[in-house]
Design a protein around this nucleic acid. Sequence first.
DNA 1: CCCTTTCGTTGGCGACTCCAACATTGGCGC
DNA 2: GCGCCAATGTTGGAGTCGCCAACGAAAGGG
Lengths: 146, 146
Amino acid sequence: MEETPARLTAKPSWLLTQLAVHAHRLASDGFGEVGARGYHYRILAALDEFGVASQAVLGRRCNMDRSDVVAAINELAEQGLVERTPDPDDRRRNMVTLTTAGDRQLRRMDRALDKVQDDLLGPLPAEDRRTLTRLLTQLLTHHQRG
Amino acid sequence: MEETPARLTAKPSWLLTQLAVHAHRLASDGFGEVGARGYHYRILAALDEFGVASQAVLGRRCNMDRSDVVAAINELAEQGLVERTPDPDDRRRNMVTLTTAGDRQLRRMDRALDKVQDDLLGPLPAEDRRTLTRLLTQLLTHHQRG
DNA sequence: CCCTTTCGTTGGCGACTCCAACATTGGCGC
DNA sequence: GCGCCAATGTTGGAGTCGCCAACGAAAGGG
């Protein structure tokens, strides 16, 4: 069959980005079934975990640009999954709150994502999964500081 | 500081895609310094490793859509890094060949990418690097079959 | 009271992935 | 040889994600 150049397959950056493509496809498919996408999940998860927050805070927590937070919250608000209300204490801010419909949607996406993890890790035994998770976490935290 | 939701950080798919963002940024920076991007490197690498090939073959080898191969080769040909000549034996095909300038460019990108691997793997000791590479390779080959 | 910073918003861009359609050409069965 | 299917190159478009520049409004600090 058509082989992939060793120059690519030998490089961790290639393995990482290509595997991320598969992970992204799996997640997108799962999210697509409930009419959502990655940015929506991040916002809903942050709201559920830390409660009401301003858009700027949500952006920092979810690793998203402010402008992308605006768009995502527009879409979530249109579906009634979050509510955007002005903050009386700081009139620059919008306080974003999770609705019960948003909470339901979050749970749906959670279930979809759990399946994704299993599909993604495929044939890997539990210990290898832990090792992989540990190494990835280590690297990610390193790159988020420097 | 602003914490990331545990729902995200706990999931391999999140770790993978987020770390891939860093990898992609590092690689893009390196490629950008020589006026190229990822698609170009894949094509040049495949040509160097397996020799002349049609665009369709290149696409399968590099995991690229046919239409994206067209665009990439247009750009590479404009810079004189590859040459596109019709195949006399099959008039549907274009044979794509690597020029000496293309070979030089490939070497430049190789050097840039080697730095990227080091930056990417950061503080990881050699054995962890091997383990990570092994696990990623394992998963990637799994997802390329099923 | 200026100066700087933050916030939300708009608009845009680049990279990667993927899909649909089309005309040309090959190959295969009949 | 003819007809049908498959492959090829090409065009055009779409979606996701990440990022940047600019702006007005508002807050905060000197």
